[in-house]
Design a protein around this nucleic acid. Structure first.
Lengths: 145, 145
DNA sequence: GCATCAAGCTTGAAGCAGTCAAGCTTGAAC
DNA sequence: GTTCAAGCTTGACTGCTTCAAGCTTGATGC
């Protein structure tokens, strides 16, 4: 089909472009996150950690949510703890584990962060229905692998 | 409108989740790129640079394509040059600028890299039509900002 | 022509992110 | 109770990234 073309497979090219787009959007989001984080005195990684702190959890749990090594989580949480945003408590049932809890300041800052992240989001160019479509596609792509 | 709900605005929540999905997919792509790059003796950043080298260009141009500082591009290109994959030539018309050119080895490696990147892509879970839809949505989102 | 300013690139210093191996404490299993 | 695994931390190390400073060269204005 399509005759003797010497160009690379069109489907492969399309997929590569698509990867580029996903990366581009992800980068925009990353920049967006970093800019907002900086206004709160946070780095991007710290903001991510804060965002994932939906409630008390262990170091391991946080590391998994951030998809990084536990040692890396230690590094990030150290910073947050020094800023008085998070606290390492004894785990109620497992004395090996730490239970991470946001301080009142941490909770306040997290709320402000979440607010900021929504403002001028790179996804604001899509209407609600488009966002839903995008969500479905992304979920399908992610589930597979 | 919408009555006195005390939960955060549902639209904001949806957008946040969507951001998370985009990030998730981007992370998967990043892992994918890194794994493939390593098999060729490259780091992820080096692979990105190689991928963006669609033809001769200046340092500044490459930096923009990689959306990083020129000094960072210098750092990456140094590595690629040491591996004999890229060459800094005198720019034909501007003696301040360098013209980056892939060596034959660099061209070969770039081709292999692009091949590898397509194999088992995280986007393989979507069919052609879904990929096209996704592309359109991403383009719209990116153009805006 | 000459002075001034901007553009392109590089350098060095610094910080953050991330991984890995090693070690400690504690829980679980046999 | 011994052994092994889980949870976390530490230290060493690498790579990425940014910033300020500096150099060369092009462009602009006088």
């Amino acid at each position: 089909m399509r005759g003797m073309t010497m160009s690379p497979e069109p489907q492969a090219v399309a997929e590569r472009e698509l990867c580029g787009l996903v990366n581009g959007l992800a980068q925009q989001i990353a920049v967006h996150v970093r800019e907002r984080a900086v206004t709160l005195g946070l780095t991007a990684a710290q903001a991510t950690a804060l965002r994932e702190m939906t409630g008390p959890m262990t170091m391991r749990e946080l590391a998994e949510r951030m998809s990084c090594e536990p040692s890396n989580a230690t590094f990030i949480v150290d910073k947050l703890e020094k800023q008085g945003l998070i606290e390492r408590r004894a785990h109620p049932t497992d004395r090996r584990a730490k239970q991470l809890v946001l301080t009142p300041e941490g909770t306040t800052l997290r709320d402000r962060l979440l607010e900021l992240l929504v403002q001028d989001s790179p996804l604001a160019g899509l209407n609600a229905e488009q966002q839903r479509t995008l969500q479905q596609l992304l979920e399908q792509a992610i589930v597979r692998s």
